[in-house]
Design a protein around this nucleic acid. Structure first.
Length: 560
RNA sequence: GUCCCAGUAGCUCAGCAGGAUAGAGCAACAGCCUUCUAAGCUGUGGGUCGGGAGUUCGAAUCUCUCCUGGGACGCCA
């Protein structure tokens, strides 16, 4: 049921070809205020064509609109305002949700198509930072949203497990490392070594050369270097898995950069074959028209990030035959991806058109980028644990008899952190604030979860039974506002996919929650006379909240 | 210096293929639990939409310019 479409159809007939259906659809808007109706058509553009005032035109159109779906049509201030037939739309919407349930808001544009999503991708031997959290939760949500659109999704954790940094780390470990200490707390100790390396390198730049040499050994398969690398990688992965478990996130592939080590020669050969590789200051680069050249090989013959990303892109196309391939990586790497796509285009791979970089703003500390090299990072694991503790304290205070407190606390604490990251447009930089992340009131994950738990409690206490024939008599204005929010859920999902922006869904859930809590406060839902009708609405709200949270990667507890 | 992103209420943000009186949340203040979980609801105050020009019947939204913050710009990733 699409009332906007019906409105547009009616307008097209009335306007008799003056505007196309598409033009009309793009002009129809949501009135600013509820008393102005549910849908509006502005007549200002028509004023020129008809040489009449918008007011006159809107009045004339209003006379002619005759759609059973609309209970009232009104001309105000140059707009044609339309009021939906509440009873009919309410019944239709609820019935649709009852029949579709969690499939409500699904699309099939992606059916039969494959999409690879590259996200999270933390760096081995470094702590899981806040920046990686963003990539992780955005990527996870986009994966779920893509599946909701019918896509076959391949989740790829492109681990940062290769590069000069490992040369540096190997040098640092051999100089100052202590096996026992690293075994006790690997990430902490490796980070300390990494930081020390950069401190010392400031004073003695020779160290940087040693680091590059060590990486060269690694790339050539030197036994000792490989053993160390493998050890660092295993320990790091163990730590990362703890975090993924807490967040409830999985991947289809953990092929990191190192995986492409033996596939890069082919890329270099291919570039050479096509005559794209040129020498410049001893290095090998691909010259690009609109961007700075893309570095493929360093003076010492070792590879770079771009080389590995090229190999990875080709590998993914060969193995997954993706239609779309998206990279959820911070906006500071925008140029890198522009170069990457440009090189692929020069290679003649038309599939590169399906590739998109999904950038996001940085987590700042005191207005500046957090620097791993200087050890200025906030450990995600600690933040998550703190959030869970706080959620537990809240449960003890508000609902001490709750069973399975630990599990619920985990769901709520993690929900708060994920929602905090997803509720705003992804391009905004975020100033790190533990206080904001651990907020459970207002526009937060726990607020939405709480609303869901409230709905669940009502259904339990009211012994809700789904009737086969829904009369559904809901006359309250508050109920109508809920219906409108339910109606906008599929639109939000579509916008989220189009803009690769999960915040669209988060915002929709907040609006729905607000509308429902308003209803809850003003209407006695379990009042016997209207109980089943009202619970039908509650059931629909609960279904949509749960599904919406799921699409964000957040659990929806039945009680909290 | 060049390019990218951002600038809206005290704070965090929404609104941006132009449209009606610029909206939330937080913080502040004032109310609402003998009745469905108060992680909630209601109300009050709070704004030259960074500045300036332009396009338009109409600009927070589009164009130009300037200012501010952040980031990227060849051997890191």
């Amino acid at each position: 049921m699409n009332y906007k479409q019906e409105f547009a159809n009616a307008l097209e007939q009335i306007l008799d070809g003056v505007l196309s259906l598409e033009e009309i659809l793009s002009m129809i808007e949501k009135p600013k205020f509820n008393h102005m109706g549910d849908s509006a058509f502005p007549c200002f553009q028509l004023a020129k064509i008809y040489r009449q005032s918008p007011k006159t035109i809107s009045e004339e159109i209003t006379q002619k609109v005759n759609v059973p779906l609309f209970e009232k049509v009104e001309a105000t201030g140059g707009y044609v305002n339309v009021f939906l037939n509440k009873k009919y739309v309410t019944k239709q919407t609820l019935e649709l949700i009852f029949s579709e349930k969690e499939r409500y808001g699904s699309f099939h544009v992606g059916c039969g198509k494959t999409i690879t999503i590259d996200y999270s991708s933390p760096n081995i031997a470094k702590p899981f930072s806040m920046g990686h959290l963003r990539s992780t939760v955005i990527g996870n949500s986009l994966s779920l949203i893509a599946e909701k659109h019918g896509y076959h999704v391949i989740r790829i954790n492109h681990l940062g497990d290769w590069g000069t940094q490992f040369g540096k780390l190997i040098v640092a470990y051999k100089k100052w490392g202590d096996e026992e200490k690293v075994k006790r707390s690997p990430i902490k100790e490796l980070l300390a070594l990494y930081v020390k390396f950069h401190e010392e390198a400031e004073k003695d730049p020779i160290l940087n050369d040693l680091g590059r040499e060590a990486f060269k050994l690694l790339e050539n398969g030197d036994k000792e270097a490989m053993d160390l690398w493998e050890w660092f990688r295993d320990e790091s992965l163990k730590e990362f898995m703890k975090i993924y478990d807490l967040l409830g996130i999985t991947f289809d592939s953990y092929h990191g950069e190192a995986f492409y080590n033996d596939k890069m020669e082919q890329v270099v050969d291919l570039l050479t074959e096509k005559g794209l590789l040129v020498e410049s200051d001893g290095a090998n680069v691909v010259q690009l028209e609109n961007f700075p050249p893309c570095l493929i090989k360093k003076r010492d013959g070792t590879t770079l990030y771009a080389t590995r990303d090229l190999a990875a892109a080709i590998y993914r196309q060969d193995n997954y035959h993706f239609d779309k391939s998206i990279y959820v990586v911070g906006n500071e790497q925008t140029l890198h991806f522009k170069q990457l796509f440009a090189v692929l285009e020069k290679l003649g791979f038309s599939w590169q058109k399906g590739m998109t970089h999904v950038p996001f703003g940085m987590i700042l500390r005191d207005g500046k980028k957090m620097s791993t090299r200087k050890g200025k990072v906030v450990l995600l694991e600690n933040v998550i644990k703190e959030a869970i503790q706080l959620a537990l304290a809240n449960i003890e205070e508000k609902n001490p008899n709750l069973i399975d407190k630990e599990e619920i606390a985990k769901q709520v604490g993690v929900g708060a952190i994920i929602f905090h990251d997803l509720k705003n447009g992804r391009m905004n930089d975020i100033e790190f604030s533990l206080e904001d992340m651990l907020r459970f009131e207002g526009e937060t994950g726990p607020y939405v979860q709480y609303t869901h738990a409230r709905a669940a409690a009502l259904l339990r206490k009211g012994n809700y039974v789904r009737e086969t024939d829904y009369k559904i008599e809901l006359h309250d204005e508050e109920a109508w506002q809920i219906i409108k929010e339910l109606l906008s859920f599929p639109e939000a999902i579509e916008r989220a996919m189009l803009g690769l922006d999960p915040s669209q869904i988060a915002k929709c859930l907040l609006d729905l929650s607000k509308a429902f809590n308003k209803y809850y406060a003003s209407v006695k839902i379990l009042e016997e006379s209207h109980k089943q009708d009202r619970l039908s609405l509650v059931f629909a709200v609960k279904t949509v909240l749960k599904e919406g949270l799921r699409l964000l990667g957040i659990q929806a507890p039945e009680q909290m």
